[in-house]
Design a protein around this nucleic acid. Sequence first.
DNA 1: AGTCACTGTTGCAGTCACTGCACTTAATCC
DNA 2: GGATTAAGTGCAGTGACTGCAACAGTGACT
Lengths: 211, 211
Amino acid sequence: MSTEPGTRRRGVAETTAAIESAAIDLVIEHGYDQVTVDMICQAAGISQRTFFNHFKTKDAALLGTDEPAIDQQAAREFIVSDGPLLAEAAGLVRIEPDRLPADPSLIVRRIDAVSQNPMLLARQMERLTAIEDELRQIIALRLRQDAIKAGADDAELADLPEQAEIITHLLAGLMRYVGLSWARRAGDGTPPPIDAGHLTERLGRVIRKLG
Amino acid sequence: MSTEPGTRRRGVAETTAAIESAAIDLVIEHGYDQVTVDMICQAAGISQRTFFNHFKTKDAALLGTDEPAIDQQAAREFIVSDGPLLAEAAGLVRIEPDRLPADPSLIVRRIDAVSQNPMLLARQMERLTAIEDELRQIIALRLRQDAIKAGADDAELADLPEQAEIITHLLAGLMRYVGLSWARRAGDGTPPPIDAGHLTERLGRVIRKLG
DNA sequence: AGTCACTGTTGCAGTCACTGCACTTAATCC
DNA sequence: GGATTAAGTGCAGTGACTGCAACAGTGACT
């Protein structure tokens, strides 16, 4: 009896992927509010309890397991770099490559579903706040580096933490733009890599106008 | 028998304010997760059903009824202004004065509670997205004004909407900072007015470092 | 005084998201 | 072949939230 005589037997990754895929498809078809966890479970062929063993919340299943994180190597380079601060900082946050879903179309479907839904968008923002502390510290280090190079006095150095905080908040807003514009460019095909050069150039033009 | 012989009699505003105040205090004391709607109801002296007649969700009670909105008069001045773009734009978003709670300390307590909690922060962000479209259009007008003054060519003008979008996202991040630092400065006393000059000066120093 | 509409409030029953605990079954290791 | 572990399940319970029906004051009209 190899055909599911009760408890399914598959790897964690497979089940997780099945849940994610089923959840996204259902939300795209019926809308976020109309989809219950029970429906997702039925579509994925599992029990509700198993669903919550794989995902902490319904939203988590829709956002997926690929959380944004700071690229530590890039962060070390960032601190001592001379390049444009904001554009470079935006490049620090990436999705861990080993957590990317096996099915690439899932990402596009997900962005489609998430961008339609304010609730999910808010949750996605919430994820970013998790790494904001880390980000602020890295930016503070970079500011310190820059200030020392420029021969700053003590009063200026003392103000850097506050400045780092402002920049971190600006960056949080910027990252939302990066995500959105990337999704927009992806359309319904395979997502293209983020164009760092393009972002840098455009940001440069924008920043000059802010002051 | 004037003392609550069953159904309380007070205006909507009074009950709403009582709920908000009780909710905030409980969250500050016990933390978001530890506070149930039932607890809030008990503290405010109402039934659960009444709670949900006043607020759609538990989060809504904590965020309050005073939603941020754009000051239209200020917006008109902003479009033709020569001042620092980002700092001035941050001043456009205000809480409608007639929706301010009677008890001024409530705002400070609320920001305190909200800033502690990622869940609530996300919800607050969600509210801001409601006015982001409007904000983007205003910024686009200002950019156009500036560009024409500077004698920009068609290619530059065509890029302005995209730039406006980036700035709007940066601004969304900045507003979070403004709220936080304002609450921090308020401490536990009466909230002081936001110091526009201070913000402008500090932002100017920061923006120079972004490029 | 009697009726009427309105407002603020309530209880109750039910759905949905989510959790803790105890338990089964299938694969794996020794 | 028995012990261990990984994946999954059932169940009972909590907390957020909704729809429905009802009830009590408040004022207004007659």
